[in-house]
């Protein structure tokens, strides 16, 4: 498995783990009644605003460990270090294609979220749909990256 494929897999797992744990924490607080849910928009604004920096910091930590792990494996195998730093035209093309796929996926999720509002469903469902499709978008994007690296562009 190449460096890029391993990186994509790490991103998938980190997305699932970070979002899953955070969702569990928020849900427990919601069940305990420690959060004010009378104002739905305020509740979700606070939840998402906390999630963004937490997610970034945890991802950075995971990527640091991933880079250290990759370097150790390369050293053990006797490969030349610095392979991970090269981003060439093929990488950029694959990234572009994956970004296009992720945009389409998230747009689809946004439309579904709007439908929940048009159909007079619970306001919470709008934000939950957006977050779920955010995770799905990330997974689809990374999976498409792996497929492009394996099957070719």
């Amino acid at each position: 498995m190449s460096y890029q494929e391993s990186k994509s897999l790490t991103n998938i797992f980190s997305t699932i783990i970070i979002t899953g744990i955070y969702a569990l924490i928020v849900y427990r607080r919601y069940l305990n009644g420690t959060v004010d849910t009378t104002d739905v928009f305020k509740f979700w604004a606070i939840t998402i605003l906390i999630f963004i920096p937490v997610s970034i910091v945890v991802r950075i930590i995971i990527m640091i460990f991933f880079s250290i792990g990759t370097s150790v494996v390369q050293t053990v195998k006797g490969e030349e270090a610095g392979v991970m730093e090269i981003v060439d035209e093929r990488d950029k093309l694959i990234e572009l294609k994956a970004t296009r796929i992720s945009l389409i996926t998230f747009s689809f999720g946004f439309i579904i979220a709007l439908i929940t509002q048009a159909a007079n469903m619970n306001d919470h469902l709008f934000f939950i749909t957006l977050i779920v499709f955010g995770v799905i978008t990330e997974i689809v994007s990374e999976l498409s990256t792996i497929i492009y690296y394996r099957k070719g562009v």
């Binding site: 392979v83 060439d88 035209e89 093929r90 690296y149 562009v153």
Partner: peptide, 22 residues
């Protein structure tokens, strides 16, 4: 040529058509 080894592998396998510059 300033690309990764994986790109050379992909070109040789016919999985990637390089740019005119490459």
């Amino acid at each position: 040529v300033g690309v990764s080894r994986q790109t050379i592998v992909a070109i040789e396998k016919g999985q990637y058509s390089p740019t005119l510059e490459l």
